[in-house]
């Protein structure tokens, strides 16, 4: 065990790469999700068709298959990516498709009356989206986005298979150097768990802020005075 702990610089380097890929992939996925999600909630048929095409294609392809394709196949037709770019692109495209479904669903879930009120107030379509629909949709998007972020973080482990020195890759190296199989993999699993917990906390913080911004969350501690809602199974 102590040998494994001695190689913590390697482990931390790996964790840093994992965090980097997670963040870059998440940013790319978020941009794609918003763009294609809004298109999916649009009225124009061609915009919705673009959304369907993107979502079905990239949601259907497994991230690893996409990564292999970018990394091994496309160079043969002249498109060359660095491993890092291939990894971020594959993860971003894949999770962007999942995110686009979340965005589309959230926009459609905003009550119709909000939309009608915005029309009645003579807001332009862009204003309607930016000032009325999206702020409310964002509150609905955040919890599923939190789940997707954790999924994305977990999916970054596969980048070790296209030779990127992330946490999993480092685990294999440390295992080979020390021969301590159980300790190495257990430690790496714990590091992943810690990263996931931190991400989860951050998303929850964001959720609380958004809800307070929309006036949906009462002051701190007030929730405890409210009686528990009826229904649900007894434990």
């Amino acid at each position: 065990m102590s040998e494994v702990l001695d190689s913590h610089p390697q482990l931390l380097q790996g964790a840093w790469i994992t965090v980097q890929i997670t963040v870059l992939g998440a940013v790319l996925a978020l941009v794609l999700a918003l763009a294609f999600g809004v298109a999916g909630a649009a009225r124009a048929v061609w915009m919705r068709a673009v959304n369907r095409l993107y979502v079905e294609f990239f949601r259907g392809a497994a991230a690893l298959v996409l990564m292999y394709w970018l990394f091994y196949s496309l160079p043969l037709v002249g498109l060359r990516f660095t491993p890092m770019a291939a990894a971020v692109l594959a993860l971003g495209l894949n999770y962007g498709a999942y995110g686009a479904e979340v965005v589309r669903g959230s926009i459609n879930a905003v009550p119709k009356a909000q939309y009608e009120a915005a029309v009645a107030l003579n807001l332009r379509p862009a204003q309607r989206m930016r000032r009325v629909i999206l702020p409310q949709a964002v509150a609905l998007m955040l919890p599923p986005f939190g789940n997707l972020l954790i999924e994305l973080m977990k999916a970054t482990a596969v980048v070790s298979l296209v030779t990127i020195a992330d946490l999993t890759f480092r685990a294999q190296q440390i295992q080979a150097n020390t021969g301590e199989t159980a300790a190495t993999y257990a430690l790496v699993l714990v590091v992943y768990f810690v990263i996931a917990q931190v991400l989860q906390r951050l998303v929850r913080l964001l959720e609380h802020r958004t809800e307070r911004m929309l006036g949906r969350r009462p002051r701190r501690g007030a929730l405890r005075e409210v009686p528990a809602p009826a229904g649900g199974a007894p434990r």
Binding site: I150, K154, A157, L161, T168, T181, Y192
Partner: peptide, 21 residues
């Protein structure tokens, strides 16, 4: 714990660690 750690590492764990047990 199982849900928030990568499947790939878990596979390594099952494949490489269990034999030593």
């Amino acid at each position: 714990f199982i849900r928030s750690t990568p499947l790939l590492v878990q596979l390594f764990f099952v494949f490489y660690v269990l034999p030593s047990w």
